[in-house]
Each structure stands twice: as structure tokens, then as C-alpha cells.
């Protein structure tokens, strides 16, 4: 479970229009202001924090759509 850490990173670099604490795990991040640029910054920060690399196959909108989706990918990569 890495959701707390992901929320922290999201809060630092997501530049969202709402407070991350108000988001559900399944909230659509693109609807609260995630852009292609902030997606990339978010990915780089997550890669640094968890010492992982997102493979190209998971680099799609669906991966960054919600905290749950990100958590799922991070869990796969950390293990």
C-alpha cells in the first residue's frame, strides 16, 4: 500500500485545482487539473521516491488517472 506516499508526491508536484486530501482514491486526476506536463513530473517524482522505472508499456493515461491506478502500478514495480 503506497497510497499515502503517492498522495504526498501528488500534493507536491501535481499542481491540482483541489487539495489532495479531498480526493477519493478513485477520483479522476485529469478532471482536477492533472496535465501532460504534470503527469511527467509526477512520474519522475514517483520513480525517484520508490526507486523504480515506469516501463513504456504502462505509460498511458489510465496509469495516471487516479491514486488507486498509480498505486497498482507502483505495487507491481516495487515488488
Amino acid at each position: 500500500m503506497h497510497k499515502a506516499k503517492i498522495r504526498e508526491i501528488l500534493s507536491d508536484c501535481g499542481k491540482l485545482s483541489v487539495d489532495v486530501a479531498q480526493l477519493e482514491d478513485d477520483s479522476d486526476l485529469y478532471q482536477v487539473g492533472l496535465t501532460s506536463l504534470t503527469t511527467v513530473n509526477l512520474m519522475l517524482a514517483i520513480e525517484d521516491q520508490f526507486d523504480i522505472e515506469f516501463p513504456d508499456a504502462v505509460l498511458s493515461r489510465a496509469t495516471f488517472q487516479s491514486i488507486s491506478a498509480l498505486n497498482e502500478v507502483v505495487e507491481d514495480l516495487v515488488d
Binding site: S36, L37, T39, V40, M43, L44, E53, F54, P55, D56, L59
Partner: peptide, 12 residues
């Protein structure tokens, strides 16, 4: 500009 952003993310 869109490509430039995505280029940072992809590995190959």
C-alpha cells in the same frame, strides 16, 4: 510541445 513532454517519460 506535447511530444517533448512525453519524450521525457518514455524510455525507448
Amino acid at each position: 510541445q506535447h511530444n517533448a513532454t512525453m519524450q521525457v517519460a518514455i524510455k525507448e
